[in-house]
Amino acid sequence: MPILETIGLEKRFGGIVAAHDVNLAVEKGARHALIGPNGAGKTTVINMLTGVLKPTAGRIMLEGRDITGLLPHERVRLGMARTFQINQLFLGLTPLESIGLVVSERLGLGSDWWRLVGTKSAVTDEIVEIVERFRLTDVMHERAAILPYGKQRLLEIALAFACRPHVLLLDEPAAGVPEVERHELLATIEALPAEVTVLLIEHDMDLVFSFADRISVLVNGTLFVDGAPEEVARDPRVKAVYLGEELDA
């Protein structure tokens, strides 16, 4: 059984069909990439998966459970977290506070209004693990607003990771990261634990083909091709609509 599955997912904005009959199946532990040209509906799909947009039709199953009607934070609690294409950080907070917040929240301390943040060692231990994993140790006391872009991007992923997701949705994680900081970011993504299923939405073909073990191509709101990277790379239709230049080069 796929860990994350969409069945006949559809989204219309008035007369415009942004996604039509999307049947996506992400297997447990996969490194699955969702690619497609600009305006193909990738962001619409991810917004439906995470509950930001309500689908017009179809269902979303997470670990066999129908989550179509759940609110965003409820999906997080069931084990699916996302990052955003454009950073969505708590700019006034430090990485330490932001991550501490998410960890506290996940451990069910979020409604605790009396104890101080960080008095539980379960929380601090986990913060340490996450700042190290995402190489934020040096900057953990700086406000997120003033971090270098690459570090902000790492924090963006760290916040989602701190939710301990079974499925992690990465929306163009490398977008806009300058070349010098890129290596660190990619290494961190490579090093994500194998048991975490990753669905990667990406433009960058190098990243997709080096990282993914399965690729789905979305064109005009419809799943076009779905398969292993080699198959997708060979597929003449994909070459025609989308990948032509990048792969021929």
């Binding site: 955003f84 969505q88 708590f90 701190a162």
Partner: peptide
């Protein structure tokens, strides 16, 4: 600071 993200981390 960011309502969208707050919901996206489970708040």
């Amino acid at each position: 600071e960011n309502t969208l993200r707050a919901a996206a981390v489970g708040i």
